[in-house]
Amino acid sequence: MHELSILMGMVETAEQYAREQHADRITGITLEIGEMSSVVPEYVEFLFPDVTEQTMLEGASLTIKRQPVCVACRDCGQVYEWRKEKYRCPGCGSESARIVSGRDFMIQSIEIRREDGYDGSGQDH
């Protein structure tokens, strides 16, 4: 059970990016969670309101995308979705593979809001 500490890291990272953009609030966040990451999306949803309370993310909408586990075949080099292909290279039939994606817990994007006149160019007027 480590979703709580990981989510605190998420808040920190998102706030840092939002501040760089002089935003007042973060109104939405999209996370990408790898299927081989031990982060459980249901817990993330459950903990999100409490973890974001009194932060720039308070009240933000949460979108979670799953990232499938992709591997590269060690024999022929083909990259394929591991589970979908039943753990066997669709090209050559080899079961020897190196994980290339599906381990991540990423912030894909944030939606930020600035409450004065602001054209989104990054320039203050």
Binding site: Y17, M106, E111, I112, R113, G120
Partner: peptide, 9 residues
């Protein structure tokens, strides 16, 4: 003003 920024971090 609302906008979306890509982070990929």
């Amino acid at each position: 003003q609302v906008r979306i920024i890509e982070i990929q971090k």
